[in-house]
Design a protein around this nucleic acid. Sequence first.
DNA 1: TCCACACGGATCGTATACGATCTGCGGGCT
DNA 2: AGCCCGCAGATCGTATACGATCCGTGTGGA
Lengths: 231, 231
Amino acid sequence: MSSLLSKHESVYRTIRERILNGVYGPGKRLVLSAIARDLDVSPVPVREAMRRLEAEGLVTFERNIGARVNTLDDEGWEQLVEMLALLDGYAMRRAQCRIPPAAIGEAQRLNDALRAHAGGPPDTHGEVMALHRLFHRTLYAHGDNRYLVESLDSAWDRIDASRVLISRWPAHRLASSVDEHDELLRLLRAGDVEPNELERCTRQHSLNAITAIRGGAHAGRLSGLSLPARP
Amino acid sequence: MSSLLSKHESVYRTIRERILNGVYGPGKRLVLSAIARDLDVSPVPVREAMRRLEAEGLVTFERNIGARVNTLDDEGWEQLVEMLALLDGYAMRRAQCRIPPAAIGEAQRLNDALRAHAGGPPDTHGEVMALHRLFHRTLYAHGDNRYLVESLDSAWDRIDASRVLISRWPAHRLASSVDEHDELLRLLRAGDVEPNELERCTRQHSLNAITAIRGGAHAGRLSGLSLPARP
DNA sequence: TCCACACGGATCGTATACGATCTGCGGGCT
DNA sequence: AGCCCGCAGATCGTATACGATCCGTGTGGA
């Protein structure tokens, strides 16, 4: 008899899930033996799971000290979002001719759900963030470059793990973001948009999030051209 | 008493080095107990090293079967280089104002060394590839985005591990590549180049490698605008 | 009071042991 | 002859054991 998943695999998935959900928040100490007891396995597969999580950038392991869920300072967070902007912009460009109308419709529904949240109660469960991530994934998932999609997923994982969006995303940015999403969907539906233009707009959309969170200043629409200058 | 490196760390470095150098070529079976004997450790730290290598995309691990060095088919290789084009182009854009003249000089020296190889004997030891990689790294290393630089290093690692450039890089592409490098250095020295233009040229330089290797057709200079269409 | 130091608990790092699974091969049945 | 089954060797997966390291704490001396 054998389970479908090896123990190190299921331990890996469980811990990863808990980090992304915020059960294990940034800075949380992950003690191997405690997790092993908790999940009813020996410490060995737990260590293997930790190595994977470490390589993915979700936890940091210090020799003879142990593992912690990664924390992200402001600079790191901005750099990560900058990566997201780069990758997502290019993914959109390459997916442009490949996104089925159904996916655009699905993205529109997700964005409408986001808009509903904009006026509603404050986001207590990270639903906004999940919707926002899913909106983007619905589109970029149709890119045909495996590494590109994997890198995007991985970057989003780190963002989720950091809990920054949940705690710092300003309300007015959500409104702007929803509008920009509509604009992107409009460009996609038009079908004949210059690829450079689509990539530029998509990139700028993510970069706007940096400006918004950094300064609190009201971010411009998709008209912006500049990359954010770091202090 | 303690060594500077833990065993799993030194095992990791050793295996990684061997994969990148081609000692363990694509498809090579990596038997845990054999490596453990070879490196004089127990199988446990070897397994940890494998998990890291797996997460980095250098090896593939199948349950109850074992580990193999990843092989890269044509499609995967093209997608990886496409990532490289995207990341390198953006890194260059962001590093533009930050690259010290000394680094540009160093890159020029590396490119001259590459040119010397172009007419010389065929490359038996991957020196051309190492020089080429180093040329790019000398420039993009000055980018201020940690994740960007890490992703570039990681993508180059996979390229190295695949041994594709060494076996398939056509001679005429090397000549074009060297010329394009000169062009990029010229743009950097000019200093007042439009960032979009610099990014576009850099991206196109890497994309040209795909065209060259795929078709064998003589790649255009940096004037090309198009992304390669996949069959 | 403040610092140096030693001690104990917590945790990590690795070796060893052993059961589980796969793979290839050879014998027997049809 | 061809196919199925079962055995043996190789290899993986995990538990357990134990030494090594770190860190907090308390004690003694300056």
